[in-house]
Simulated scan of single mutants.
Amino acid sequence: MSYEHLLVAVDLTEECDPVIKRAMAIAMDNSANDAKTTKVSLVHIVEPMAMAFGGDVPMDLSQLQQQQFDQAKERMERLFNKYPDIQRGDSHLVYGQPRQEIHELAKKQACDLIVVGSHGRHGLALLLGSTANDVLHGAPCDVLAVRLQKKE
Rank of each mutant, 00 (worst) to 15 (best):
Q71N: 13
E104H: 12
Q100S: 14
E101P: 03
H103S: 09
I86L: 00
Q67A: 14
I45R: 01
D56W: 10
D60E: 07
L105G: 04
M59E: 07
G55E: 04
E47K: 13
S91G: 11
T37S: 11
G55M: 05
Q67N: 11
V94R: 10
M59D: 01
G54P: 03
G96F: 04
Q68F: 06
Y95T: 10
I86R: 00
R75P: 00
R99A: 14
Q87S: 15
R78K: 14
L79D: 03
V46E: 04
H44W: 08
V94Q: 12
D60Q: 08
F69P: 00
L64K: 03
E74G: 08
D70V: 04
P58I: 03
Q71C: 05
P98N: 08
Q87N: 15
Q67S: 14
Q100C: 02
V46S: 10
R75L: 14
L79C: 01
F80Y: 09
Q66Y: 01
V43E: 01
G89W: 00
N81V: 08
R75W: 02
S41L: 05
P58H: 07
A50H: 03
L93T: 01
K36W: 08
A50F: 12
I102T: 06
K73G: 07
G96S: 07
F53G: 09
D56N: 10
P84T: 12
T38R: 04
S91N: 07
Q63V: 15
L61T: 08
I102G: 01
E101Y: 02
G96T: 12
V94L: 15
E77L: 02
K39V: 09
H92L: 13
I102D: 07
D56S: 11
I102E: 06
Q66H: 11
G54R: 05
I45M: 07
L105Y: 09
P48K: 10
P48E: 10
Y83C: 04
K82P: 00
K82F: 03
K39E: 09
V43Y: 01
E74D: 12
H92S: 10
Q68S: 13
M51Y: 15
V57G: 06
V40H: 01
M59T: 11
L93V: 05
Q63G: 01
Q67K: 13
T38E: 04
Y95K: 13
D56T: 08
A52P: 03
H103V: 12
V57F: 07
P84N: 02
Q97S: 14
G54K: 07
D85S: 14
D90T: 05
L61F: 04
H92W: 09
S41H: 11
P48S: 05
L79Q: 03
L79N: 03
N81E: 15
L61K: 04
